[in-house]
Amino acid sequence: MAKKVVASLQKGGGKNHTKVIKMVKSPKTGAYAFKEEIVTNDKVKEWLANN
């Protein structure tokens, strides 16, 4: 499935998007989890600041 997503992003406007991954610590358990999302290039810093 990952190959299909990457292939579809390479066509057309896929170069305007970035997959961002951030490690987040849970306040309850103290365990770390990863949040990931595909956002436009101009919103990357904003996403990292808010999430």
Rank of each mutant, 00 (worst) to 15 (best):
residue 48 L to C: 08
residue 30 G to K: 01
residue 20 V to S: 01
residue 24 V to A: 13
residue 8 S to R: 14
residue 11 K to E: 10
residue 21 I to H: 02
residue 49 A to R: 13
residue 19 K to M: 14
residue 8 S to T: 13
residue 30 G to D: 02
residue 27 P to Q: 11
residue 17 H to N: 13
residue 5 V to G: 02
residue 33 A to G: 15
residue 13 G to R: 14
residue 5 V to N: 07
residue 1 M to Q: 10
residue 34 F to P: 02
residue 44 V to D: 03
residue 25 K to I: 06
residue 34 F to T: 08
residue 51 N to Y: 01
residue 11 K to R: 14
residue 45 K to P: 03
residue 21 I to E: 06
residue 9 L to D: 08
residue 6 V to M: 04
residue 1 M to T: 09
residue 12 G to D: 12
residue 20 V to Y: 00
residue 33 A to W: 15
residue 38 I to M: 00
residue 11 K to I: 13
residue 45 K to N: 12
residue 23 M to A: 10
residue 37 E to Y: 06
residue 31 A to F: 07
residue 34 F to M: 07
residue 43 K to S: 07
residue 25 K to P: 05
residue 2 A to M: 15
residue 3 K to I: 04
residue 11 K to Y: 07
residue 45 K to S: 13
residue 45 K to G: 04
residue 8 S to Q: 11
residue 35 K to A: 11
residue 48 L to D: 01
residue 34 F to D: 05
residue 39 V to C: 04
residue 44 V to H: 11
residue 51 N to D: 01
residue 20 V to F: 00
residue 9 L to C: 08
residue 9 L to Q: 09
residue 37 E to A: 10
residue 19 K to W: 14
residue 33 A to Q: 15
residue 27 P to K: 12
residue 8 S to L: 12
residue 31 A to R: 13
residue 50 N to A: 10
residue 38 I to R: 02
residue 21 I to D: 06
residue 32 Y to F: 12
residue 41 N to R: 10
residue 22 K to E: 10
residue 1 M to E: 11
residue 47 W to K: 05
residue 31 A to Q: 12
residue 23 M to P: 00
residue 3 K to M: 07
residue 39 V to S: 00
residue 9 L to M: 10
residue 9 L to S: 04
residue 14 G to W: 04
residue 50 N to D: 10
residue 35 K to H: 15
residue 6 V to F: 10
residue 20 V to N: 00
residue 15 K to I: 04
residue 13 G to P: 13
residue 51 N to C: 03
residue 39 V to P: 01
residue 16 N to F: 11
residue 35 K to Y: 15
residue 44 V to A: 04
residue 47 W to P: 06
residue 27 P to T: 09
residue 31 A to E: 09
residue 27 P to F: 04
residue 50 N to T: 06
residue 8 S to P: 03
residue 15 K to F: 05
residue 6 V to C: 03
residue 34 F to A: 07
residue 39 V to H: 00
residue 27 P to D: 06
residue 47 W to T: 05
residue 12 G to N: 11
residue 22 K to Y: 03
residue 36 E to A: 09
residue 36 E to K: 14
residue 27 P to C: 05
residue 10 Q to W: 08
residue 36 E to W: 06
residue 46 E to S: 04
residue 41 N to L: 08
residue 6 V to P: 01
residue 42 D to K: 13
residue 5 V to I: 14
residue 14 G to V: 07
residue 15 K to H: 05
residue 15 K to R: 09
residue 40 T to L: 12
residue 26 S to M: 06
residue 48 L to N: 02
residue 22 K to D: 05
residue 24 V to G: 07
residue 3 K to R: 07
residue 30 G to C: 01
residue 42 D to H: 13
residue 21 I to M: 12
residue 20 V to E: 00
residue 13 G to I: 12
residue 41 N to E: 14
residue 5 V to M: 09
residue 51 N to F: 01
residue 28 K to N: 07
residue 29 T to Y: 04
residue 11 K to H: 09
residue 28 K to F: 06
residue 40 T to H: 13
residue 50 N to G: 07
residue 2 A to I: 15
residue 29 T to W: 01
residue 37 E to S: 12
residue 45 K to C: 09
residue 36 E to I: 00
